[in-house]
Design a protein around this nucleic acid. Structure first.
Lengths: 163, 163
DNA sequence: GTGGCTGCAAAGTCTTTGCACGAGT
DNA sequence: ACTCGTGCAAAGACTTTGCAGCCAC
């Protein structure tokens, strides 16, 4: 089945994004409920890799009746459908990423900030390496790299060449 | 301060390992209590990257009076001293690793198994890459790679060239 | 109409905390 | 002796679950 990433459409207007989300949900045989639409939209427009709780707070601003339980269930459902990724970092509740394209993470241990890092050259490098390296009794899948460190100026964003 | 990894001494007899652990603790100005000795010994001899609970069960076999709370506190203390690493994987409580040498992880999403992966060539490759790549407003530290996948034969261990 | 989804609240799991006592230095 | 560490139990944080009613299809 074709997989559509929710947040590869950030150039779209909010209305068009909603349509795209509806389409994506239907492709995965999931009902396009208003709750799911909001949650997916907020997650896909977020840059912070939010926790369920953070997502809940943001969603509440416009949809105060959506419950925290629904956020949890929806995120798990999206994950099972391959529409959201879990991100695991130190000393934090489960965090979420709408970017389902294989990618890496830069993690600031001071602020807890996570920045997506995507680079073909790096992927080629690592993939070539593991092709040479024989790992027996194991079928490799996604490779995820995490670059830990600290921000120099906490008020400025982390950037990298290619952004 | 010199940092000693607890589990770099697996070739040592149990008695010598204990002495090494005492020495390591004192180096870090931590009291060498029997509880800490057992916990460090069990962790350093474990291959499964155990959770606090799993460690507790193993410790109980020989030291039934050590409490779970002490396991948690001890692990956190060891972590702060740089003597134990946290390992974050999907759908699991916090897991622990006595190997504090920078290294990577192979993770089987079927069995939850984690295998340490250490290779100089890979580290050189990645470090060179990030030296070229300019990431601004960020002081990079440890790079951790996780190779996700599934075991082919669940009853056999995962191995790789160089093991 | 029906099956899947939601809201609610309760329960479950994992982890931290406070405190009095005990032990290592 | 003094300070740090431990055991215990309670509390806290995070997440899942059960179920009745509702809504997208």
């Amino acid at each position: 089945m074709q997989k559509l990433s929710v947040n590869n459409f950030s150039y779209l207007s909010s209305k068009t994004l909603t349509l795209k989300i509806v389409e994506t949900l239907k492709l995965h045989h999931l009902k396009a409920t208003p709750q799911r639409l909001v949650i997916m939209q907020v997650l896909s427009e977020s840059a912070v890799h939010p926790t369920a709780e953070q997502l809940f707070e943001q969603v509440q601003a416009t949809h105060p009746t959506i419950s925290l339980g629904t956020i949890y269930k929806t995120l798990e459902t999206l994950h099972e459908a391959g529409l959201a990724q879990k991100v695991h970092v130190a000393d934090s509740a489960q965090r979420w990423d709408a970017n389902i394209h294989p990618h890496h993470h830069i993690f600031c241990s001071d602020t807890g900030e996570i920045v997506d890092f995507e680079d073909e050259e790096l992927d080629r490098l690592i993939n070539n390496y593991f092709l040479k390296k024989n790992i027996s009794n194991f079928t490799p899948g996604q490779i995820q790299l995490q670059l830990n460190g600290v921000k120099i100026n906490p008020n400025q964003p982390i950037k990298y060449h290619g952004h």
